[in-house]
């Protein structure tokens, strides 16, 4: 189960990095000079907006629908364990 979670985490991180690289540099889908237009805007501008929307949706899915990110129940448990560690630290 742990390996499966790590694998899914890795896939999401790879997708995030790939989409970020595409969003930060249009070298693959945009060329210098005149370009075709899609919905009245330059084709590369349309593509970068679509990539932005896809990345946003991927982030949303990762954070709210995969169980891979921090949840409020996790938070309570983590805080209680950290508090125990803090008490031990103070004692010592």
């Amino acid at each position: 189960m742990k390996e499966q979670s790590d694998k899914r985490n890795g896939i999401f991180i790879a997708v995030f990095i790939f989409l970020t690289a595409m969003i930060w540099c249009p070298v693959i889908y945009g060329r210098y000079g005149d370009s075709g237009r899609i919905f009245s805007i330059p084709g590369w501008a349309f593509i970068v907006i679509i990539l932005g929307i896809i990345l946003f949706i991927a982030e949303w899915i990762y954070l709210f629908h995969t169980g891979l990110s921090l949840s409020d129940r996790d938070l309570e448990e983590i805080i209680s364990e950290l508090d125990q560690a803090k008490r031990k630290e103070i004692k010592s």
Binding site: I13, F16, I23, W24, A45, V48, L55, F56, E59
Partner: peptide, 20 residues
Amino acid sequence: GFGALFVLCVNLVPLGFLWY
């Protein structure tokens, strides 16, 4: 023109996972 979309627009979407 449209190149400005790479400044403070679409380029900030990665902040969702970077900040997280």
